[in-house]
């Protein structure tokens, strides 16, 4: 049985419904909200501020710290154990490396910018939603960045290349599934995050990475619109 029609009826290159907002957390220096389908992420940015312990300071540039966290009730029924886990630490790290190429903190030596990403509800694609929310929040905080980082997943479900897999597709049992989160700088088309879970052929990988570019640029427009709408 080939995967001719997606489980939720989307086109193969269609993302789930997207909603984005800036300035959702009043006390934070910058904040963003990003929802794609049933996955939603809040990001709050604090700083630049003093960094302690001193040994963590960098006299050449400011430091970016990211923290990714899924709320205990965010999964599909199963309680997510609170606190840092191997998985959340890894995602925090890749989020940081995905954002660093655009963020310029050289004006803030020895200081730190903290990014907190919280997910109240997840249905696959949470790290991508987190990165999108975080770049909205960083821009909202007035931090210099050459572009917003935009992210979405691509991959295959039973030999069919698709964009933005949801949880039902990730758990599809009729054939091979590969889930590839991709983050990109839209203006230069540089990829800042590329991970994979599953198996995919070389041809399909190329096809998927080609196909993901258009949706990524659309998401970037949504992110930019969210930042502008704050001042309407």
């Amino acid at each position: 049985m080939a995967y001719n029609k997606r489980l939720d009826g989307r086109k193969f290159d269609e993302t789930r419904e997207i909603e984005a907002k800036a300035g959702v957390i009043k006390k934070a220096d910058g904040s963003g909200y990003f929802r794609i389908g049933k996955t939603s992420a809040y990001a709050a940015v604090y700083g630049p501020k003093e960094l302690f312990p001193k040994s963590m300071q960098d006299p050449k540039t400011g430091v970016l710290r990211c923290n990714y966290n899924m709320m205990p009730f965010s999964g599909a029924g199963e309680r997510v154990r609170p606190g840092p886990s191997r998985r959340s630490k890894e995602i925090s790290m890749v989020t940081k490396t995905a954002l660093l190429p655009v963020v310029d903190l050289t004006d803030y030596p020895n200081a730190v910018v903290d990014v907190f990403i919280e997910l109240p509800q997840t249905d696959a694609g949470s790290r991508c939603a987190g990165i999108c929310a975080a770049s909205i929040a960083l821009a909202d905080a007035g931090i210099r960045m050459k572009d917003v980082v935009t992210a979405v997943s691509c991959g295959i479900v039973d030999k069919q290349v698709v964009i933005d897999l949801d949880y039902a597709e990730e758990a599809y049992e009729g054939g091979d599934v590969a889930d590839i989160p991709v983050a990109m700088i839209p203006s230069t088309e540089e990829i800042t995050l590329l991970q994979m879970d599953g198996n995919i052929s070389r041809e399909n990988l190329k096809k998927a990475l080609e196909m993901v570019k258009e949706p990524l640029k659309k998401i970037a427009e949504i992110q930019r619109k969210a930042l502008k709408d704050k001042y309407k």
């Binding site: 700083g47 630049p48 501020k49 909202d140 905080a141 007035g142 931090i143 960045m145 930042l227 001042y231």
Partner: peptide
């Protein structure tokens, strides 16, 4: 940066709207 664009002849700069 997020800001208001200010065009001064040929020079393009932005006036920041947020930031520490």
């Amino acid at each position: 940066k997020v800001g208001l664009l200010s065009v001064d002849g040929k020079v393009l700069k932005t006036i920041a709207l947020s930031g520490k």
